[in-house]
Nucleic acid binder design. Sequence first.
DNA 1: CACCGGGTTCAGCAGACTCTCAGGAAACTC
DNA 2: GAGTTTCCTGAGAGTCTGCTGAACCCGGTG
Lengths: 231, 231
Amino acid sequence: MLADVTTEPSHRVLVVDDEESLTDMIASALRFGGYEVSTENNGYDALRSIKRSSPDVVVLDVNMPELDGFEVCKRIRRDGINTPVIFLTARHAIDDKRTGFRQGGDDYLTKPFSLEELGLRVEALLRRTQPESDSSRVSVGELTIDEGAHQVWFGEQEIDLSPTEFRLIHFLAINRGRVMSKAQIVAYVWEYDYDGEYGIVETYVSYLRRKLGPAGAKLIETVRGVGYVIR
Amino acid sequence: MLADVTTEPSHRVLVVDDEESLTDMIASALRFGGYEVSTENNGYDALRSIKRSSPDVVVLDVNMPELDGFEVCKRIRRDGINTPVIFLTARHAIDDKRTGFRQGGDDYLTKPFSLEELGLRVEALLRRTQPESDSSRVSVGELTIDEGAHQVWFGEQEIDLSPTEFRLIHFLAINRGRVMSKAQIVAYVWEYDYDGEYGIVETYVSYLRRKLGPAGAKLIETVRGVGYVIR
DNA sequence: CACCGGGTTCAGCAGACTCTCAGGAAACTC
DNA sequence: GAGTTTCCTGAGAGTCTGCTGAACCCGGTG
């Protein structure tokens, strides 16, 4: 199917390292992965930033002057802040790892590491700590679709849909803003190649518009001669 | 990872590797760290064991004959089982790590690794995942299920259920809010792969609804063409 | 051996869902 | 503005799904 269309608000990651070139590199890699990234270059600023903006994950270098990463982690935990922490360090002595985990760290990467691996670990950690995000929700304006729960709301109102109706609106929603041809729709929603008979799509769009009510009906736009869109 | 002398009930870890000497070594190290450990030596047994005894963490070797670790992880996730997984492997190619994390793994250790580090990572993972499932009790609205005691209440009323009925309602309850397909239900409740015959699920849902009484029957919703949910 | 509780299969029924068709509305072309 | 194309929507037939009662099987127990 199609490209991972992440429709949720992206997760916020704080990257802390005293080498600015490194924070920049990590930050841009994570941004490329779809995260909202901020950076700090020392322990005190990191502490302040964590308290103020409570990111979803902190990537924390151990070896920093003044306040090192372990100390930062220890302090935020002492303050009852439970944000997941991934330690970065050049040391790979087991003693350090022990300290890192004991201090309340969640993961530990030794330099040099691959940026992709960091991304994967951030993702895995988020999957564990942000339980909400696993039921994959899509929203477009007033419309909200929860794939896991198989539920659809328009505003406050829950809309009861048949399986085919659900697949159709879901397909349009994850491709919101892009016009989908009837052929594409049929291929996704009906899962097979159809022979030129696209009347069925029109029928189901009609069903959806009716169920969405007068306000919601406008959500699904017809692009004559091309297909349908949700904007 | 020592010697935390705690009074809490120890966590249960399942260790899976096709080399028995390795499972034994890991198992004894983890036991020393205060965990209750069981082992399996191949993918199929691992699957069965996970479904039956639902451990708190699974340490899973990737490279096994027949059913490899990735596949085991993929299948349990597909069946709606959310148990944390740490992969073990000799490979350290980034491709493998990507596969591991994408399959729903939580951590990834490459051999050779230190047993202490494994212990630390198990501990870190438990720290993240246990608070959510703190006791063996699940509640959804009026419904309360105590897994340990094997008891179910609806409101004040205790409901007497057969073992299969219990596994079914428990599975739906721990996945509350998410629609579970009949295939997922059969895989979890009946512990084997079934071919197309899902009538049994309907029968048991029917039993449950009857036992839950007129008010409770609404708890288990049918999502036609998709599966069942408890919300 | 009869009984009992639990597991499984099956068939009939009701209702939900899918899909086709056709008349009419709307949009586009020239 | 006439003609053409595309789309909308109501109606209905037929299919599929899920619910439930009943029957059967099996192992354990009195």
